[in-house]
Amino acid sequence: MTSQRLLNLYTWAFLAFMFAPLLLMIVASVNDTSPPSVTEWHGVTGKWYAFAWMPDEALRADAVLRTIDRDRFFGCFGNSLKVASGVVPLALLLGLAGAVMLTRWQSRANGLLWWVLLSPMLAPGIVLGLSALVFWGRIGVDAGLFTIIAAQLTFVAGYPMLILMARLQRQPVELEEAAMDLGASPLRIFLRITLPFLAPALVSAGVIAFLASMENYNTTMFAKGGACTFATEIGAMARNPNGHPPVINAVGTVIILLTFAAALGHTLLRRRERA
């Protein structure tokens, strides 16, 4: 039983390792000092959150917040949403096509196809961004939101593909054969049998693609040209020689709480479904 105890202890230590930095981030987000700190306590403040909605005069009055271009900050956030709204549907479409092809279309070229479709997921993220930039530059497309979408798509499409493929492999081929035998056309089989079966997987693939697109930094940095996304804008704040403003901690806290609520809600929902 001692080895079991040891394993439990280790698991708690691991979870502490995972969550401690996040907790510190939350604590620092209400500390009235910049750069964010938890060791020097200057009193509780909500201004790092209020940054999002406080009037311009109040903004200009604060020595730290004054240095951040709020309009640009939210402009970049909008860009991220634009990019994601392009990446997610395209990634689902490409992923679906790839998944159907690799699971239902057996051919000798299959091995090669695997490599072609999966290699972007295996390449360093920076290389994908750079390749998209060079490729579209050659064609005459200037770097910007479009090249970001193109670059992110190369690897984001892999997630839906893998998720949908796993699901497709669990669906017996006989279902599609039975539908065909009963006189259904390939399109009807896809719409009536395959797609409903894939629906839950499509939803989770969409969520994962959205998160991957929103948080991506490594690839986007190379493909963005003059444009910005939320991730690159937040990343750029690290270059501040005085340390980053606690606004980032506030944003991080919001993300953490949203993620927490979503994951908890999802888990509870699934438990109720099963009960």
Binding site: P172, E174, L175, E177, A178, A179, M180, D181, L182, G183, A184, S185, R188, R192, I193, P196, F197
Partner: peptide, 30 residues
């Protein structure tokens, strides 16, 4: 789907997400 045959599979291959009625009516729907 063009032959006057119907096949009953070893694992039956009933469509799990359709009601019994929709399963039986599927061929006519097509």
């Amino acid at each position: 789907n063009q032959r006057p045959t119907a096949l009953i599979f070893q694992n039956l291959a009933l469509f799990p997400l359709m009601s019994v009625r929709d399963n039986v009516a599927f061929g006519l729907e097509a």
